[in-house]
Design a protein around this nucleic acid. Structure first.
Length: 342
DNA sequence: GACATTTGACCGAT
DNA sequence: ATCGGTCAAATGTC
């Protein structure tokens, strides 16, 4: 079958080039690390790594000749310099069914990898699948699951390898601008004397990463619902304790017990994920947060400074959530802790 | 009910 | 005309 001298598929070549690049970067990192080692064997290790780097460099320069064509790495219209995608073509309004603004392929730099797992630490949402001309396997199209809530434009295409069924050719487009809950360091906003929490909040500060709200998003669900709770009493303020939130129950490791949401009266929640849309970071959302339940609540504090806020209806005591950019939560200071998408 | 996936249709590029 | 990427309605799952 494959013995007829066919060219290496572009995607495989691209993957190979990318692997070389990554290998070289890794080796370079390792070299730096070795140079910092206080070990008599380090110089020898550095020489070995240097050799590896040389080999990699020469292999890459050899590929570079035809590599320009090979590389999806540097797609023709790759807009790294030109500011990304070319201007959107006018949306066809002729059709009464579907209209769209296209972002065509090859408009952004891509990064192709061959992996044996589809789990890359991000949560993806599949939005299409196509049979591809010279491929035996269909290609699946994914976008970051945080596209809707954070405007993350990362995408990937996944195709089973033609040569090795157990492997996938994964091509990434765009970069993640979202914050994955599992990778976010807990954000703790210490209440300074000047920006004291509201009376009833008793200094409880809760921060969380981007959330998808509903506890149903497969692997992300668990981490999405992590809450970090800082007790507001005395020295405990400086103690960060990890809390796990399942539905309405919050476990506080410092408290050593489960707390019901209702007990967290007036806690201030600071997050990075605009549950609503990225354009509404300054909106107070009481009824339309896509995932958050709605209802009335504390309001005052949570909404102060312009975080998008929504409130759980099940919380008669008015636990408030501030969702979205922290913004100038305590005044006019432009003290955003999270960069928000335009 | 909310969210994810499937799948046929649409549409721009080639 | 064909291909590939995306949309969005229908469907499935929790």
């Amino acid at each position: 079958m494959a013995s007829s001298g066919r060219d290496v598929p572009a995607e495989r070549a691209t993957a190979a080039v990318n692997d070389l690049i990554e290998a070289r970067e890794g080796a370079a990192t390792l070299r730096i690390f070795l140079l910092q080692l206080d070990d008599h064997r380090a110089p020898h290790a550095v020489r070995v790594v240097d050799g590896v780097l040389d080999r990699l460099s020469s292999a890459m320069s050899a590929l570079e000749v035809s590599g320009a064509a090979v590389a999806g790495v540097q797609s023709p219209a790759a807009g790294s310099g030109s500011g990304g995608p070319r201007p959107q073509l006018s949306v066809s309004s002729s059709g009464n069914k579907k209209k769209r603004s296209f972002s065509r392929r090859s408009q952004r730099a891509s990064d192709t990898k061959i992996t044996d797992t589809l789990d890359d630490g991000h949560v993806w949402r599949k939005y299409g699948q196509k049979d591809i001309q010279n491929s035996t396997h269909p290609r699946s199209y994914y976008r970051c699951t945080h596209k809707s809530d954070q405007g993350c434009n990362a995408k990937r295409q996944v195709q089973s390898s033609d040569t090795d069924q157990s492997k996938y050719v994964v091509t990434y487009y765009g970069k993640h601008t979202c914050r994955d809950p599992s990778t976010i360091p807990p954000l703790v906003v210490h209440a300074a004397a000047g920006d004291a929490p509201p009376d009833h909040a008793a200094g409880n500060l809760i921060s969380f990463g981007p959330i998808s709200i509903a506890n149903n998003t497969s692997s992300a669900a668990a981490s999405s619902s992590q809450l970090y709770l800082v007790s507001g009493s005395g020295a405990a303020v400086d103690q960060l304790s990890t809390s796990w939130c399942a539905s309405d129950d919050v476990f506080s490791s410092s408290a050593g017990s489960f707390m019901h949401m209702d007990e967290l009266i007036g806690a201030v929640v600071v997050g990075s994920a605009p549950v609503v849309t990225t354009t509404s970071t300054a909106a107070v959302v009481g009824s339309s947060a896509s995932g958050m339940d709605r209802g009335g609540g504390v309001g005052g504090t949570a909404a102060r400074g312009g975080g998008a806020a929504s409130f759980r209806p099940s919380s008669p005591n008015g636990l408030g959530f501030v969702v979205g950019s922290l913004g100038s939560i305590d005044g006019d200071d432009d003290d955003d802790l999270f960069p928000m998408d335009p």
